[in-house]
């Protein structure tokens, strides 16, 4: 309780400081360049050229400190040894190339990149198309969307329970094994099956992200001009043809947005692997491998090098985003 009080007080202090900053600096600016008197015109101009920077100041400072500086610093650190003090040249990079753990992580990450965005977008598109046609569609949407609010760790607990295994001849309490046994199969330890366990982990992220894809794609589908669909109906197209040939082509842009957004998320996937397997049984991914080197290997240089690899994979998407955004301005 005491701590919560502290949180509330510091929240008030933080908000108060923000308000004081914005209000105070504006007051001072108006004091230095008063909008009256003989120089009123010039003063207003001057004040107006300074004011944007007052508004932007805290944001720029925080963005620089928390995102821009770290990117530069990580690049530098990747050329340094474990403690970040001794220069080692490109040793970290050559280590990376020959490291089996890194290759495994990279392979798994590519697998994730290939499967998760595709599956989430696919299921999202199907859910969006179907739920828009029925009366209880909104409830259905809400339920499919729900996993979005659940933390990756929470989702991991949920799915670990689904994948749970008990010995043979004992009643299975994990849903998946219970189904397998009911169908006459052998119970499996899903999350330790080499290679395939990756897919059982991916299911968790697909489960979470399908709702996101559905919401965005559903809005896009509703934005399609009625006339194009009506014309196709008059021409005798069946619903499947209308969907595949008229609707989907019109929302390619949105599909691309959904796809890239999930791709970025996948590159950073960490919590699920950490909670489910911690990278054992051949399920390591880059973000968790980096975390491993940071806290267990205690090697900041190698860890930063892995972070750079993740960053490099994001850069094409970043450039594409910036170009798209500039078209809007």
């Amino acid at each position: 309780m005491e701590q919560l009080l502290l949180a509330l007080v510091s929240m008030a202090a933080g908000v108060g400081a923000c308000v004081l900053y914005f209000w105070g600096t504006n007051k001072i600016l108006d004091g230095i360049f008063p909008a009256r008197g003989e120089n009123a015109g010039r003063n207003i101009l001057r004040a107006n050229s300074i004011r944007p920077w007052l508004f932007l100041g805290p944001a720029i400072a925080l963005l620089t400190l928390y995102l821009i500086y770290p990117v530069i610093n990580s690049v530098i650190l990747s050329f340094y040894g474990p403690s970040g003090k001794s220069y080692v040249g490109t040793a970290n990079y050559s280590w990376l190339i020959s490291d089996a753990g890194f290759r495994e992580s990279l392979r798994n990450n590519l697998l994730w990149l290939f499967v998760v965005p595709a599956a989430s977008t696919f299921f999202g598109l199907i859910a969006a198309a179907l739920t828009d046609r029925i009366s209880w569609g909104n409830i259905a949407k809400s339920l499919i969307f729900m996993p979005m609010a659940i933390s990756f760790v929470g989702a991991s607990v949920i799915w670990k329970f689904v994948y749970d295994i008990r010995g043979e001849n004992i009643e299975q309490i994990g849903l998946l094994n219970a189904i397998v046994v009911a169908l006459g199969g052998e119970p499996q330890a899903w999350i330790t099956l080499p290679f395939w366990n990756n897919f059982f982990l991916m299911v968790i992220l697909i489960w979470i992200q399908t709702g996101f894809a559905m919401v965005i794609l559903s809005a896009a589908l509703r934005g399609i001009p009625e006339e194009t669909v009506e014309a196709a109906v008059l021409d005798g197209a069946n619903p499947l043809q209308i969907f595949m040939k008229i609707k989907v082509p019109q929302i390619w842009g949105t599909i691309a947005v959904v796809w890239t957004t999930i791709t970025i998320l996948v590159l950073k996937v960490f919590d699920i692997v950490l909670a489910m397997t911690n990278g054992q049984w051949g399920s390591q991914v880059l973000a968790n491998y980096m975390f491993d080197w940071m806290f267990r290997g205690l090697d900041f240089g190698r860890s930063a090098t892995i972070a750079i690899v993740i960053m490099v994979m994001v850069i094409p998407i970043m450039i594409w985003n910036i170009r798209e955004a500039r078209k809007d301005v």
Binding site: P52, L67, S74, M294, A307, M311, I322, A325
Partner: peptide
């Protein structure tokens, strides 16, 4: 508001949208 560098700043914000958190951890921890 009108000020020089607005478009650039906006581009930077859009670029930073996708910077992986992983990049920030070690430098900030240090």
């Amino acid at each position: 508001m009108q000020f020089p560098g607005r478009a650039l700043l906006l581009a930077v914000v859009v670029g930073l949208l996708v910077v992986p958190l992983q990049m920030s951890l070690i430098p900030l921890l240090r």
